[in-house]
Design a protein around this nucleic acid. Structure first.
Lengths: 193, 193, 193, 193
DNA sequence: GATGAATGAGTCTTCATTCAT
DNA sequence: AATGAATGAAGACTCATTCAT
């Protein structure tokens, strides 16, 4: 078994991270034991520790990877040269959150809820969650500016509705994670109003 | 073994619950051991188990009590015969969340974050959190109706702005818990926009 | 089970330390698991950790206690106003090392061998062993001076034979621990010559 | 799988043994993991197990090799047709122990301390250490006889000073390993007295 | 009612060893 | 011969809970 390729190494990491999220989604982070993850990943204890130094590091990597996946799905929507008009944007985001989001049992909403629950007591989690939110917030501000330029929304009056939108977005996450799976159109309707 | 009076019993429970929240606020629920709570409450292990059957039950009672306290503070604001006008209401709620909220180290924002983190894996916590949110949501709807009757806001157009408001309120909680203590006026401004 | 008395507490510590030495004597420190000690002491894992914070601390306490016991036995012999004459002293010390020494399966010789084996890698063990040796060495010097005054040994010539004696004493420990149990008279004869 | 030449095989074994002693000297036998040795030897786990069946066997070989090296250095000194006179002999031995001894980070003093620490629980180590000591002891007796014949020391009186010398030699090892590196002349002075 | 010492199942982690390549 | 990823038994330690006093 000579040195494994970097791809294979990453594949193993992903295998473990996916197993972790399946466990976390079932029982929460704190009620998930390393043994749970190990069994779910069909590996041996030693093997997991070959890829992650500790449970702490594994959890952090799990959060990091979840938010990274979310970013990968949101960025194409949020950074279009010509942004979607308001109503479409909302539906597209809702789609990502509610649909794509559930591949591998990884529910982004629940991931955020967990992240928020950990953040006050774990600076590194706080940073990860904060980074994700900052990214999203800033993209939203840029979009609103473009909307104003394009005339999709009135350019005068309260100049930026984005903080409001962002706040509602967070609220939406809470509710959708709370209520459970919902279809994108219902979700969009809720988000829109 | 003379039975203790109901008052004394409740006082002891409150003493333990307050100690619990001080611990939870410092380290989170899962990193708080029964021993931490016992020491913080200046009691013996046995004593705590005289008032709560298990850590599970104690945590549930702690959530219940936190949301009950919040309700006690919000109800007078939300159920006035003549509701506060929009801008004032927002400030009053913000006051409660950010200021009164911190008696006994119990930060309502963090309590909600914790509740959301637990809810997906604990039906009883889910119920408690859900009840609190429902109460708030319904009160908000009633207020909006009164505002419309009174002419504080336009009666036509999108009939209920309350879900929107509610969603933003949840988002606000996330952000305020995340950012840390902020004064009520800043908070109100953020909530209003 | 109200607060245990200081005596009982010490008794428990001694019970654990005695069990530790029985285990250490059988398999050595490193091959002795906490579970071995726990079983030998007829206690539960938790109980042992109530008295010693870690295996490390327990081992240290075990060394400390072993050397302390040895000191308790040697001091009366080494600090007599009128020291034993050379030949008797040697027999008395040999007695202690070979006979009393084996109560509770604690063989002082083996304890020293273990201490020497640990000392180079554990500063605290080094200190404990070093302290014991210093004590013995100094007592020996004092005795030799008294012998010279009293005329038991010539006062002129090489003034202090104590380092020599001390070195031989250490060598004797190695050999006796190595050979196993021997009776005090044989031991004395060996030490004397 | 072309069989490697016996020389090459021995060279690899020596490479591993040298690496082992460097590790043992740093952290002790029990705190040295196979991985430590493997990394220190710049080999793979599999390779080491090609030359030694187990950690146990490797340790035994390490002791064996250490004592063998010591023998190689001492035998020319101890078996001269015309032995060194007492004072010179002592210096020459001290030289070997303190100076030559440290090639490859292998400190003979520490090796003995370790051997003594293991011997009570490992018959094979006991045998190795015992053999070394016997060899030295016997060589010393032979030398003393020659000294007496030659008149270097009185032939009458206590017939054999060798056991005494031997014991002091062991004590010296303990002390020198304990104190750390010292130069041969100081060492000789200590040994002589 | 109250105490706190004791319990022991469960957790994370390490490490000697193997074996497919 | 050599590699190093994988294994899994074993180890140290924690902590919710109990119960004799």
């Amino acid at each position: 078994m000579p040195k494994i390729s970097e791809e294979k190494r990453q594949a193993r990491r992903d295998q473990i991270l996916a197993a972790s999220w399946r466990c976390f989604s079932r029982r929460g982070i704190h009620s998930t034991s390393m043994e749970d993850i190990i069994r779910e990943a069909n590996l041996s204890s030693g093997a997991v520790y070959l890829y992650f130094q500790s449970k702490e590091e594994l959890c952090l990597a799990a959060f990091s990877s979840a938010f990274q996946q979310m970013r990968l799905l949101l960025v194409p929507i949020l950074t279009r040269e010509e942004p979607y008009p308001p109503s479409i944007l909302v539906r597209e985001i809702a789609k990502v959150i509610t649909f794509h989001a559930q591949r591998d049992q990884l529910n982004f909403g629940v991931a955020f809820l967990m992240g928020w629950g950990e953040a006050p007591f774990n600076p590194k989690v706080k940073e990860l969650v904060g980074d994700g939110q900052r990214m999203y917030r800033e993209a939203l501000i840029a979009i609103v500016h473009k909307w104003q330029k394009r005339g999709d929304i009135p350019a005068y009056g309260k100049p930026a509705t984005s903080p409001k939108r962002f706040s509602r977005f967070l609220g939406f996450i809470v509710q959708s994670a709370f209520i459970g799976e919902i279809d994108p159109d219902t979700a969009a309707k809720r988000l829109r109003d």
